[in-house]
Amino acid sequence: MLEAIAWIGSAFIIAAVGLSIAGAVGVLRFPDVYTRIHAASITDTGAASLMTLGMLLMAGLSPAAIKLCIVWLFIMLTSPAAAHALAGAAFGSGHRPILGDPRRPSEDET
């Protein structure tokens, strides 16, 4: 039983790794600041949550589980706020999102 739960935890962690790789590819490949922030914040929240869930299942009922929950709460509080601050700073310093089809650059794009 415990073995099976640990395996499910590993599956969650592998899913988190996949999401992290997707986020990293997104940061490198997406066209403008805002879509890149979107990709990075998926890694920050989604992948981190899946990873915490996986580690929770592997830790079982222990003091480590409580610490993991606190870490998860901290991440869920800070990462979206940091992404928000980043997007706000980008908008404040004059970056405008690319609108429309990015493969056909219009006159909006600088």
């Binding site: 901290f74 509080l77 800070t78 979206p80 706020a81 928000h84 601050a85 706000g88 700073a89 404040g92």
Partner: peptide, 19 residues
């Protein structure tokens, strides 16, 4: 100063600083 006056940041900071 990042994003002056943003309510999201000020709420997050108010929660985080005491912790």
């Amino acid at each position: 100063r990042i994003s002056a006056g943003s309510p999201v940041l000020s709420v997050a900071a108010r929660l985080l600083i005491p912790i």
